[in-house]
Simulated assay, not measured.
Amino acid sequence: MTESPDEDYRRAAVDLLGAIAYGELSAFERLVEDAKMAPGIGDKIAIGAMATAEFAHLQKLVERLEQLGADPAEAMQVFRPSFDSFHAHTAPSDYYEGLIKAYVGDGLAADFYREIAAYLDPETREVIISSLEDTGQTAFIVERVRAGIAEDHRLGGRLALWGRRLMGEALTQAQRVAGDRDSLTALLAGGVDRPGLDLAALGRMFARLTELHAARMAELGLDA
């Protein structure tokens, strides 16, 4: 039996919300772990505040999933293997690498999801956009990284390489999330009632993601 266009769309919305929600959950867990590497109590408090913000974002996504008639845990579980694999391949070796991952890696993921959210209904789009908002905590990361580089110039080169690695891994992860789920592929392909992404538009989207990544790296005082 062929599903209705409305049901196809609901599945796509649930998949996207599930992916973002698991991303927020894993970010929360990772920040809690990163706080253990923080050199002082002030840094631990700042990282803890970032983790708290991630969890608050997660709750909004869970509520929207429930409104769409989905089981939030099931919607998130689908994406657990790919996200866990990504984090296993990009585990930071020290505090500074953790900060870069939180700022650059999570920022790139947020940019990608904002792009896809443009194809959703206004209510779901607003939930996603609000869940990806910077709560202002990341200013702390920029300050800490710049201060660290000022103290040790060798740190800048190492973190620049780390940032480039994160970029490649994050783009691969984004393509995997979009490509592994037929519903998301169909959403991006468009339909008779809405435009989709052709190859040219897809190329422009990834060009925008690359530019935003370069801007974040520059703000940190690093070469993209």
Rank of each mutant, 00 (worst) to 15 (best):
P5N: 07
E7Y: 10
D8N: 08
Y9C: 04
V14F: 06
G18A: 04
A19Q: 05
A35Y: 00
G40T: 15
G48C: 03
M50S: 11
E54F: 06
H57F: 01
E63I: 05
L65W: 09
L68T: 05
G69K: 00
D71G: 03
A73S: 13
Q77C: 00
V78M: 01
F79L: 05
R80S: 13
R80D: 10
P81W: 11
F83L: 15
D84T: 14
A88T: 09
H89D: 14
S93Q: 15
S93V: 13
D94F: 06
Y95W: 15
Y96S: 13
L99I: 07
L99M: 14
I100M: 15
I100A: 09
R114C: 11
R114I: 04
E115R: 00
I116K: 07
A118N: 00
L120A: 10
D121V: 02
P122G: 09
E123A: 13
R125K: 12
R125V: 06
F140K: 10
V142N: 02
V145F: 09
I149C: 13
I149D: 03
A150L: 14
G156M: 08
L159A: 08
A160Q: 10
R165S: 00
A170R: 14
T172Y: 13
R176P: 00
A178N: 08
G179R: 10
R181D: 03
R181P: 01
S183N: 01
L187I: 11
A189I: 04
G190N: 04
V192T: 06
V192P: 08
G196S: 05
G196Q: 10
D198Y: 00
L199D: 15
F206C: 02
A207Y: 06
R208D: 15
T210P: 00
H213Y: 15
H213V: 06
L220F: 08
L220Y: 11
L222F: 14
A224D: 11
